[in-house]
Design a protein around this nucleic acid. Structure first.
Length: 495
RNA sequence: GGGCCCGUAGCUCAGCCGGUAGAGCAGCGGACUUUUAAUCCGUUGGUCGCAGGUUCGAUUCCUGCCGGGCUCACCA
């Protein structure tokens, strides 16, 4: 241990004393009969009965020959009452060697103190793990039913770097991650109920595809080849649809070598789903049904509050074609403009058109600048320019557009979906256009994938595809302002 | 990448218009056998993020660097 300070030294001394008293500070097992939650919920049946609880010592109120301690487990805290008369002289000496942060087991009858606090009257206790590093102690009390914490452990850097401490000390953090897990479970159940198959596809890919982004690069020694960490799994899932799996999904960690901010982490999680014989209209219905039912299941309601905004996830969600959205919020109909007129329109809207931007990119910028942030209630933005969507099928009616939608909630897109392009000739042309963009210096342009094209040549049924950003969905449903608050271990510079 | 802000005890924070630092909590010692932010008395603990500069003297002023936060731009 490098940074031995006084507090750590004192704890190490206590550890030595425990050894001298023949106490194993790191035993193997403890028979827990009840969690702190069970003890509190079933007090009426358990009163006077022997219980064994275990957890971390979070508060210690010594009163001479008796003491009250708060023991915290995954579900909460319970008070334990230690009396010298009950446990004996020697055990009381051992008790005095305990510190806040130690993990202990306590056994004895359950009772209520004079002030009405449910407590374990300790007949016996064991040290289950001596903690040699002090945890930040935040005192707290109940006031009008809500928790007031004094001087909470709040330094964001420390909380992210030492998430284990954050989780011990800030119980509301744990709640966020429990909800994240339940959101994923609820989605999985929703998809399984419909008969879709959960699959796994490669993370290490020789050709990255399925999105427009810069990849992470790595090397495979055995084959002396360059590999990329996937930026998406779309092309692999569609290969599976071509192979006859008519409904497949994957919760996928994807990796994008790009900027970081409160909506972006270099590795993030997406759920991608592909269903054969369906189109994007059908997928919109599935999406609103899935998200709203997940909210209902996890939160018990479809009406949520995100950063002070009230949001109603109840279907049906608004459908808003991209051009209509732009017209609505800028007053300009740009759907019929040619390239020159488009640049003029951008200029009028104070959008600086950069070298190499096509009309699709300009439209996307106008949307991002003028429309997206206004879309607080759930909205499907539909029918994007074909240039921006090289994997989506051309719109059956609107030339120059594709059948695509992005669900936008609280001013932020949380997913992306389309009627999947399954015409191998068209797909090849789209790839070739991407390669031209790449040759012109667009590092995010997509890469031609011959094997994927081969799969399309064998034939893939008409298919609807969907990707949902799990991190963003979790932010939304847990009311967290930053992606770092829904990732256990967000990317940080090394200490 | 730009702008703004932050880095002082284990935690939460004061302070310093230049004279090498304080509080609360935690810890340690003492009193206390139904407390709950327990209380009361006493007390330890800091290369003030790092490196340079200015100065008789820098935690304080200046510069650079490191780490972080917020924000704008870009990407999901």
């Amino acid at each position: 241990m490098e940074d031995v300070n006084q507090l750590i030294a004192q704890r190490l001394q206590k550890l030595q004393k425990l050894y001298q008293m023949n106490v194993n500070p790191y035993p193997y097992k403890f028979e827990r009969t009840h969690t702190t939650k069970q003890v509190k919920e079933h007090f009426s049946e358990l009163e006077g009965k022997h219980v064994q609880v275990a957890g971390r010592l979070m508060a210690n109120r010594l009163m001479g020959k008796a003491a009250f301690c708060d023991v915290q487990d995954m579900h909460g805290r319970v008070q334990v009452f230690i009396k010298k008369d009950e446990i004996g002289e020697e055990a009381f000496e051992i008790y005095k060697l305990l510190d806040i942060g130690d993990i202990v087991g306590a056994a004895g009858p359950l009772f209520k103190t004079r002030t009405g606090e449910i407590s374990v009257l300790v007949k016996e206790f064991v040290v289950l793990c001596k903690s040699v590093r002090p945890i930040p102690v935040a005192k707290e009390k109940e006031e009008d039913g809500s928790r007031v914490v004094y001087d909470p452990f709040s330094d964001k850097e420390l909380r992210y770097r030492q998430r284990y401490v954050d989780l011990i000390v800030n119980p509301e953090v744990k709640e966020v991650f429990i909800k994240r897990s339940r959101i994923i479970t609820a989605m999985r159940e929703f998809l399984n109920e419909r008969g879709y198959l959960e699959v796994e596809t490669p993370i290490l890919q020789p050709i990255y595809g399925g999105a427009s982004a810069r990849p992470f690069v790595t090397d495979l020694n055995a084959l002396k080849m360059r590999l990329y960490l996937r930026i998406a799994n779309e092309l692999y899932l569609k290969r599976l649809v071509a192979g006859g799996f008519e409904g497949v999904y994957e919760f996928a960690k994807d990796f994008r070598n790009e900027g970081m901010d409160r909506f972006h982490n270099p590795e993030f999680t997406q759920m991608e789903l592909y269903v054969a014989y369906q189109d994007y209209h059908w997928m919109m219905e599935l999406t609103e049904e899935m998200i709203s039912s997940v909210a209902q299941k996890v939160l018990g309601t479809m009406k949520i509050s995100y950063q002070g905004q009230e949001i109603d996830l109840t279907p049906p969600w608004r459908r808003l074609p991209l051009f209509e959205g732009i017209q609505q919020y800028t007053g300009m109909d740009i759907s019929t403009l040619n390239d020159e007129e488009m640049e003029a329109a951008a200029d009028q809207l104070k959008i600086t058109v950069e070298e190499g931007w096509g009309r699709g990119k300009i439209i996307d910028e106008i949307f991002g600048e003028y429309v997206e942030k206004h879309l607080i209630q759930p909205t499907f933005i539909t029918d994007h320019p074909v240039e921006l969507s090289p994997l989506a099928k051309k719109h059956r009616e609107k030339p120059g557009l594709v059948e695509r939608f992005e669900p936008v909630i609280a001013g932020k897109e949380i997913g992306n979906a389309f009627s999947e392009l399954n015409d191998p000739a068209d797909q090849r042309l789209r790839f070739e256009e991407q390669m031209r963009l790449r040759a012109r210096g667009d590092e995010e342009a997509q890469v031609l994938d011959d094997d994927f094209l081969r799969a399309l040549e064998y034939g893939m049924p008409p298919t609807a595809g969907l990707g949902i950003g799990i991190d963003r969905l979790t932010m939304l449903l847990t009311d967290q302002p930053s992606i770092r608050d829904v990732l256990f271990f967000p990317m940080m510079r090394p200490e």
